[in-house]
Amino acid sequence: MQLIWEGTVKAFELVFGGNAEVWQITGLSLKISGIATLVSLLLGIPLGIALAMTRFPGRALAVASINTGMGLPPVVVGLFASIFLWRSGALGFLELIYTPTAMIIAQVIIAFPIIAGLTMASFQSLNPNLGLQLLGIGASKPQLLWLLCKEARLPLLAAVMAGFGGVISEVGASMMVGGNVRGQTRVLTTATVLETGKGNFDIAIALSLILLALSFALNFVLTHIQQREQLRWPKLS
């Protein structure tokens, strides 16, 4: 118990004492996972919409793949990303292994199926005739897509939360393709693993608390937006 208490005190010292390395690690975590989430949104939302709104041969296979991808273990992603990005690997010439870019790539592979899958589900929960109605009052195709996204905004927010939450907290892939290089690819999760291994529990606790606080702050804001628009349930006795 004392360990946790001391760790917590130390954590506050590190965070509010202006420890440059802790802030650098936090900033890098946010940057890598933020960019990965953004890229995943750009790829996942159009794919999710396409899967929800169209029928084509092989669609069932695509949907099953996306659903499998939603639960992809980060270490498996890390393994295959490493094999490709390894200096002698198929994409080795890009010289990306142990760079933040490699970590972003790995995190996109993790977050993109989550976002695509949840986008598909959110579009499928819309009334299928809504699109026809919007066209029936004169929507152009881009207006139609925009209005449908707006209508699905609440479940889409859930997709953003799930995607970002998935990558900011994963450690396996970041460790494997990033290498936990101090000052370059060390992020909150990999640093926590390292410090725990070295027995520096106070620093590890500090990093964990920052991670928790980040996750909580983001989810609090998004949940607030989401809940604001929900209809109230009547009291069920």
Binding site: N127, N129, L130, L132, Q133, L135, G136, I137, G138, S140, L147, K150, E151
Partner: peptide, 17 residues
């Protein structure tokens, strides 16, 4: 699109956003 914009549809369900 231009011709569609000179018409308007109302369906059985109100289909509001």
């Amino acid at each position: 699109l231009l011709l569609r914009r000179r018409m308007a549809s109302v369906f059985q369900e109100p289909l509001l956003v």
